[in-house]
C-alpha cells in the first residue's frame, strides 16, 4: 500500500512548511490524501486540475497541493470556479469549501451552482463549526450542541447539506466521513468522472473547537462516534425506523445524467450559428 499512499509526495508543494498547520487529528489531512489518490487514479496531469478554495481550514488544502490553485474570498469559491469552467471547459475544476464557507456566507452561490449544473466538483468539508476563526456556531452546528457563541446550546436547527443539494437540483450528491476513507476515495473518483455539478460532503471532526465543548474527550472519540453512527444507505434501510434518526447516512444519494451548463452553452452556440447561416 505504500506505493498508493506515498503518491501524495508527488503532488505536494515541498517548499511549504510541513507538517501542515491543521490540528492533530483533524480530518482535513485525510481528505487531502483521498483527493490526491483520486486524481492520480484518474490519470489527470497537474495542469489539468484546478483547485479553488475558499477561506477556512479547508482552504489550506489548496495551498499545499501542486495543482493550479486559487485561494479565493470567503464564500465565493463557487463563483470563481464558475468563471474558470466557462472560460476553459477542458479543465477539471474542484472546489474545496468548508461548511461555513459553502452554506452560510456562500449559501446563495451554492444553491445556484447546483441549479445551473455547472461542471464543477464541490467538495464540502463539514466539521460543524467555524474552526479557524475561533469556534463560532455555523449553519451546520447540530441543534443543542455547545459552541463558543452558543454556550448554552445551539437553538437553531441545522442544515443537512445532502438534502439541501437534492432540493436545489444537484445531479450527483454523495456523503462520506473521513473514517470511511475507501468510500470517500470512490465517491470523489465518480464525482470527478461525471459532467455537471457534483457534490461530495466529507464529514470531518474538529476536536479543537467543536469536540472539546461537546463531551468528546479526545479526537479519537469523534472518530469512534463516526464508526458507531455513520451507516451506509442500504444498512440504514434495514434498521427499524425508530433507530434511524440518530444515525448519519453515508453513500451516494443521487446519481442522474444531465447536460452541464458548459455543454448547453456549446449546443446553444452551434444552434444559433446554424440559424444565422
Amino acid at each position: 500500500m505504500a506505493e498508493v499512499t506515498q503518491l501524495i509526495h508527488h503532488y505536494l508543494r515541498h517548499n511549504k512548511k510541513f507538517p501542515h498547520v491543521l490540528c492533530p487529528g483533524c480530518g482535513h489531512g485525510i481528505v487531502l490524501g483521498s483527493l490526491v489518490r483520486s486524481i492520480h487514479q484518474l490519470g489527470l496531469t497537474k495542469d489539468e486540475v484546478v483547485l479553488v478554495a475558499g477561506i477556512g481550514c479547508s482552504g489550506r488544502i489548496a495551498v499545499y497541493t501542486d495543482f493550479n490553485t486559487v485561494h479565493t474570498t470567503h464564500g465565493r469559491a463557487l463563483t470563481f470556479a464558475t468563471g474558470i469552467k466557462m472560460a476553459n471547459p477542458g479543465l477539471k475544476v474542484i472546489v474545496i469549501m468548508g461548511d461555513g464557507d459553502a452554506l452560510s456566507i456562500g449559501g446563495n452561490h451554492f444553491i445556484h451552482a447546483a441549479r445551473r449544473n455547472i461542471g464543477v466538483t464541490a467538495l464540502i468539508l463539514n466539521n460543524n463549526i467555524y474552526g479557524m476563526t475561533g469556534g463560532q456556531s455555523s449553519s451546520t452546528t447540530p441543534q443543542d450542541s455547545v459552541s463558543m457563541t452558543t454556550p448554552f446550546g445551539q437553538m437553531e436547527k441545522s442544515f443537512d447539506i445532502v438534502e439541501l443539494a437534492k432540493a436545489a437540483g444537484a445531479h450527483y450528491v454523495a456523503r462520506s466521513t473521513v473514517l470511511h476513507v475507501k468510500l470517500l476515495d470512490r465517491i470523489i473518483v465518480t464525482a470527478l468522472e461525471r459532467p455537471g455539478f457534483n457534490l461530495v460532503e466529507a464529514l470531518t471532526p474538529c476536536h479543537t473547537q467543536f469536540g472539546r465543548k461537546n463531551k468528546f474527550k479526545t479526537v479519537v472519540d469523534m472518530y469512534k462516534w463516526y464508526k458507531k453512527n455513520a451507516l451506509p444507505l442500504d444498512a440504514l434501510a434495514k434498521l427499524p425506523e425508530a433507530q434511524r434518526n440518530a444515525r448519519v447516512p453515508i453513500g451516494i444519494f443521487v446519481q442522474e445524467e444531465a447536460h452541464s451548463l458548459e455543454d448547453r452553452y456549446v449546443m446553444l452556440r452551434s444552434r444559433l450559428q446554424e440559424g444565422a447561416s
Binding site: 505504500a2 506505493e3 487529528g25 483533524c26 480530518g27 489531512g29 485525510i30 473521513v178 476513507v181
Partner: peptide, 30 residues
C-alpha cells in the same frame, strides 16, 4: 493499511518486504 490511509499528517508508511528490497524500482513501476 488503516494507519496509512487515516494518518492526517502522512507520517506512516507500511512497506511490504519485497518492496523494501528494491523500493526505488517499485516506485518507478508504479
Amino acid at each position: 493499511g488503516f494507519c496509512e490511509y487515516h494518518c492526517p499528517d502522512f507520517a506512516i508508511v507500511v512497506k511490504t518486504k519485497p518492496l523494501l528490497k528494491n523500493y526505488a524500482n517499485h516506485a518507478q513501476q508504479g
